[in-house]
Amino acid sequence: MVAPSRHPDAPQLPRRLIIGITGATGAIYGVRLLQLLREMPGIETHLLISDAGVLNLHQELDMRRKQVETLAHVVHNVRDVGAAIASGSFQSDGMIIAPCSMKTLASVANGLSDNLIARAADVVLKERRRLVLMVRETPFNLAHLRNMTSVTEMGGIIFPPLPGFYHRPQNISEMIDHTLGRVLDLFAFQHALTPRWAGLKADQS
């Protein structure tokens, strides 16, 4: 994905990415994503964590809000709907919600903007920027599927964090990095998180 075009005399801004962490299982995806982006030069992350997301961080990772917030460049209160990222004039490459709960999916699909996560996602969609929702639930009911269809029709990308096995991961960390590498590919961020698919190996026997 190409960064937003700017006037040639305008100051060069970093590539900005909005990261939302909500109350679905899979908090590790949001935390690991922040860690990876922190190591990449020229990228500025804007973090939002829902109340349920805070609970999951503690439940799944024994992490407190402040520990996760230190991984981001800018932190926004999820209730601050007057924040800079609530406006289309805020320039960004897009937004990733990792993980994305079914509640947040429904809010985005129906344009509710009931908190800053949903409002920021709504802005990204209306400005035709990239929105990726790493939805977590199983099995899906019809409401979930219809909401995913609605977001897709609006230009968003539904990306359930389903592990791949063709690269023969040796542990959970490799599985997580492979999934996040595919997400970063959607924003044309360079990384070396996983080997690229080179086709099926011929039988050597």
Rank of each mutant, 00 (worst) to 15 (best):
F140I: 07
L133I: 03
R130L: 10
F140H: 13
S150C: 02
P139A: 10
F140L: 11
L133S: 15
A120Q: 03
A120K: 02
L105Q: 12
N115A: 09
L112K: 09
L125T: 04
R146T: 13
A143K: 00
K126N: 05
L131I: 01
H144Y: 05
L133M: 14
R119S: 08
K126E: 11
L105V: 10
A143T: 15
I117K: 02
L142Q: 11
G111F: 09
L125N: 00
S113P: 01
L145H: 07
L112I: 06
V123W: 12
L105D: 12
F140W: 08
V124M: 12
V123S: 07
R119L: 08
L133D: 11
N115F: 15
L145S: 04
A109P: 04
T138D: 03
S107L: 03
D114Q: 11
S150N: 04
V151P: 03
R146L: 01
A118V: 05
R119D: 07
H144V: 06
L131P: 00
N115E: 14
D122Q: 07
I117H: 07
S150R: 14
D114W: 06
T149Y: 01
R128V: 06
A106T: 00
E137A: 13
L131N: 03
V151C: 14
V123T: 13
M134S: 14
A109V: 01
A118Q: 06
V123Q: 13
E127M: 14
V132I: 15
L142R: 15
V135E: 03
S150W: 02
V135Y: 00
L131G: 02
H144Q: 10
F140E: 04
A109T: 03
S107H: 00
D114Y: 04
E127H: 00
V123C: 09
H144R: 05
S113R: 05
H144T: 10
V108P: 10
A143G: 12
I117T: 06
R136L: 04
L131D: 11
A106F: 00
V124K: 03
R129L: 05
R128P: 11
I117Y: 02
L145N: 05
S150I: 00
L125C: 01
R146H: 11
N110G: 12
S150G: 01
L133H: 09
T138G: 02
L112F: 09
V151R: 09
L105R: 04
L133A: 00
V151L: 12
R130V: 06
L125E: 03
T138Y: 11
